[in-house]
Amino acid sequence: MIQEAVTFEELKDFIVATFGAEVVVAEKADDLQPYLVLQTERLAEVCLALHDHEQTYFDFLSCITGIDNGPEAGSMEVIYNLYSIPYDHHLMLKVQVPRNNTPDQAIPQVPTLSHIWRTADWHEREVFDMVGIYFKDHPDMRRILCAADWEGHPLRRDYELQEYYHGIKVPFDQHNELNGFKGEPQQLVGQPTPFSDKREKPE
């Protein structure tokens, strides 16, 4: 590779020197994988500098993870795993946003990175779909894995299944009940099938 791997401290110093100390909200350097928590509003400009600067050159965005910490904690996080192919170094960045505990509160917002790494386009759509964080200025903010008219965001801590989806009962089988699903017991709905009335009842 081109030069010695940059350490985590040097990367942090680079960010602080370029954008000021207030942009790094928190850090954890002694963890299994160290990370920086950045100011949410300035995430995009920091990432643009990390991508473009010739000494950092983070050209590969590996992964974006959205985490819901639950209504008690009242916060949500988005975690970015950056990697630089020529320099072979990693960086984990994090932003934290307040959570909307009820549907009438404003949905949490994070600036998009899809203009820097195009791969962020689909990853951010997935985060939006799964935990319900909106990415500002994203070109195409739609759901990606769930259906477009699905209700709720499945990886939120307080997620509850909708009862019906297009007339299909969503808690599909009784295994749900055995596995701790606390819904109404399964009942046959709709018209009886041609076989249902011919089936013999057990004695």
Binding site: D31, Q33, Y35, C63, H90, M92
Partner: peptide, 15 residues
């Protein structure tokens, strides 16, 4: 703890 672990599968980087 937070960890992103990746490795090479036939299709590329699985993490």
């Amino acid at each position: 703890q937070e960890l992103y672990f990746r490795a090479e599968t036939p299709r590329g980087e699985l993490g």
